[in-house]
Nucleic acid binder design. Structure first.
Lengths: 223, 223
DNA sequence: CGTCTCGTTGAACCCCATCAAAGCCGGTGG
DNA sequence: CCACCGGCTTTGATGGGGTTCAACGAGACG
């Protein structure tokens, strides 16, 4: 999941075909905190998140970290580069994934619908990353946090009564590393949104979006 | 082209198969300043740059601009999203492109090598964009400019005698919008590199890289 | 030669990072 | 049950890197 403007109802990549001729038919379960793969690992399979959330990260030689993306149900992770994984993937919660044999897909021996779904997922990834560029390159800290919460609320938000709620499975530090900010700045932006009555917090990881329209406006720089 | 750490000899995406059963076999010529496509255009074909350079841009509603990427010979541009182009593409110089029918590729009716080349190009794009994230999110202005010049020199640099030269077809403003900086900051970083004897300028658009290793070191934060 | 665009340089400001400390919460063990 | 501990979050104070505003310089072109 990236911070993208063009988030539509079809944000969630349509499910891959349910069965993969050379892979397990049942979702695999992953424990919270364990890794689905590491940077440099040989890529044999790609994954579609069924439930839970994952975090994709890359690090600079000196230790600076960038969270590339978060993966939520429907998202596809593990796109290879020269046959290797290009980032680490860690489970933020307990996670279920479906996996698909990559040689089977890129080799062309898989079913046409599966190959089509793979191509769609890759193209969707490219478009979403382009939107995310815009945010990293050009938005202020408060716009970034507002964008993030706005996207999260549409992506994994739920209504409790007439309240729009979002569970954030990641830490403030993860959010900072995703948005190109520090933990402290993210926290301050949360506080600011809370004080202006746009969101409320129920613990650090549950956000109640009180004024979704105002949040969206802020995320576009109309603040 | 993105600012990426893992730039290898195979950076240039291997050429697509030379003939496309439903497309023109000869490269198409584009004038400097003209557009290959606009955001929102229906995607019918994708393009591989043969010669020249293009610029891919997106803009926020309020006019802030982000240069998504530059396209140089070998690069593939025009990946669709829901059948539409997702950014503008303008020729920075006179450009030659080969074009390929997209329905033909994604529909599966094209030759297997062409489809494979398309998938490879998309996966390469994803990996390169991930590297670029790291730069946009975590690098300082001087690291960004050094990274940019380092990548450019390896990507489109040439040797004149024993001198490593790079022609920059884009403006300082384009570079700034690519790196998430202002024109002034880019200019100051160029000056700084020049004063420290790492590069020299022959006009604003020709860079002589005097100390490639130092440039690379700076780009990794060892400055 | 005049004009226009682009690039460079300077000065002041401001946003965000950095450093520091206190608050909060869940977990553990007595 | 409660005290203690450690990690995460929040808040405060300060400083710096990059933006902003402004002016000047350098080519390109008519």
């Amino acid at each position: 999941m990236y911070v993208t403007n063009s988030l539509a109802v079809d944000e969630v990549v349509s499910s891959f075909p349910p069965s993969d001729e050379t892979g397990p038919r049942l979702p695999v379960k992953i424990r919270e905190g364990s890794h689905l793969f590491f940077e440099g690992d040989e890529v044999s399979r790609i994954y579609q998140i069924v439930s839970g959330a994952v975090r994709l990260t890359r690090v600079l030689p000196d230790g600076r970290r960038q969270v590339i993306a978060f993966g939520f149900p429907g998202d596809v992770v593990g796109f290879p580069h020269h046959g290797e994984h290009h980032c680490d993937c860690e489970a933020l919660t307990a996670v279920e994934v479906k996996s698909f044999s990559l040689p089977c897909i890129t080799g062309g021996s898989c079913s046409p619908p599966l190959r089509q779904a793979f191509i769609d997922a890759a193209l969707h990834e490219i478009a979403a990353m382009q939107d995310h560029f815009l945010m990293l390159g050009r938005k202020s800290s408060s716009e970034r946090v507002a964008s993030f919460l706005s996207v999260m609320s549409r992506r994994v938000g739920y209504t409790d009564g007439d309240m729009l709620c979002v569970e954030l499975p990641m830490s403030r530090c993860d959010i900072g590393d995703f948005l190109g900010l520090t933990t402290e700045t993210v926290s301050r932006c949360f506080t600011q949104l809370r004080k202006s009555g746009i969101i409320a917090l129920d613990g650090a990881h549950t956000v109640l979006v009180l004024r979704p329209t105002a949040l969206k406006a802020l995320s576009d720089g109309e603040g």
